[in-house]
Design a protein around this nucleic acid. Structure first.
Length: 277
DNA sequence: CACCCCACCTGCGTGC
DNA sequence: TGCACGCAGGTGGGGT
């Protein structure tokens, strides 16, 4: 569910309340997430430690705890984080409850349980983060850097944008929207893109992600921020989820499947390129 | 290596 | 009404 903008909105909601507080206890439900530290590990490393910082890396939330302990949370498709008091009747699919100083509770809810809650002791960097690619807003990401990453690859640009080991944080919704804005057919092999194409891809990536953060993220089904509020960027989606509807140009929006995921695009605004650049 | 498929889960909408 | 099916924002393991 949540892509970079949604995770960032959650981070901005949680940080002012949580940073500086001490974790006191963790309640762990019976059902496990796809990736989850054992209750023993969570209880060994969290209680008694103060939260020194809350950062985002790609779609991960990174809680930096006193003494170099790291708590990593990934929301998967349907994960939510929100702060107490606990609603009654109790919500279904709440798998962990973190109790913090001041009677504060942080709930992790995840219907489909694709999320991750992992704790790492001091020392080594958390291994999952080593796999995470560049931040889209990082200065090292330039059109030339993207072209370099694409060198020797033949995959479609849509799949390239979804690869979190290259650029972190872009998911299915924003990949579709970025390609429409950059006027690129989603099946275009990355080796075919010119430097000017990469320039548009990067500029539109940053513009769209920034705008989505400003609008509180995209809510198409499940997403809610840390205060339980929906986002508003779904009102600005131009192609995602709109197969058969007219694009702003008038042509009907198409759907295709790439690497097992739906891609929405406008065949007129994003024409297939048959000739060489 | 590069790339794709599929598994991992639950819930919802659709069509018969 | 019930049931089967397809589909959904995520990653990662295994196969080609």
């Amino acid at each position: 569910m949540p892509e970079l903008p949604e995770v960032e909105v959650i981070r901005r909601g949680l940080a002012p309340v949580l940073v500086g507080r001490r974790f006191l206890a963790v309640k762990v439900g019976a059902q496990r997430l796809r990736q989850q530290s054992s209750p023993q590990e969570l209880r060994r490393w969290l209680p008694g430690r103060r939260l020194e910082g809350l950062r985002r890396r790609g779609k991960y939330l990174r809680f930096d705890l006193e003494g170099g302990v790291t708590l990593l949370i990934h929301l998967g498709m349907t994960g939510r984080l929100f702060m107490g008091p606990p609603p009654s009747p109790p919500l279904p699919h709440v798998h962990l409850v973190f109790q913090l100083e001041g009677g504060l509770e942080l709930f992790f809810q995840d219907t489909r349980r694709f999320g991750q809650v992992l704790v790492f002791p001091p020392g080594e960097a958390p291994p999952p983060l080593a796999q995470v690619g560049a931040e889209p807003f990082s200065r090292k990401v330039t059109p030339a850097w993207l072209a370099g990453q694409a060198r020797g690859r033949s995959r479609p640009i849509k799949n390239f944008l979804l690869d979190a080991r290259i650029l972190a944080g872009i998911g299915n919704i924003y990949a579709c929207e970025i390609l429409l804005a950059a006027r690129l057919h989603p099946a275009t092999p990355v080796a075919r893109l010119t430097l000017a194409d990469w320039g548009r891809v990067l500029a539109e990536t940053r513009r769209i992600l920034r705008r989505a953060i400003k609008k509180g993220g995209t809510t198409v089904a499940n997403y809610l921020n840390s205060k339980g509020e929906a986002g508003l960027f779904q009102l600005e989606l131009r192609v995602y989820g709109r197969a058969g509807e007219p694009c702003r140009c008038g042509a009907p929006i198409n759907r295709l499947v790439q690497a097992g995921r739906s891609t929405f695009f406008c065949p007129r605004c994003q024409p297939r390129r048959d000739c060489n650049p």
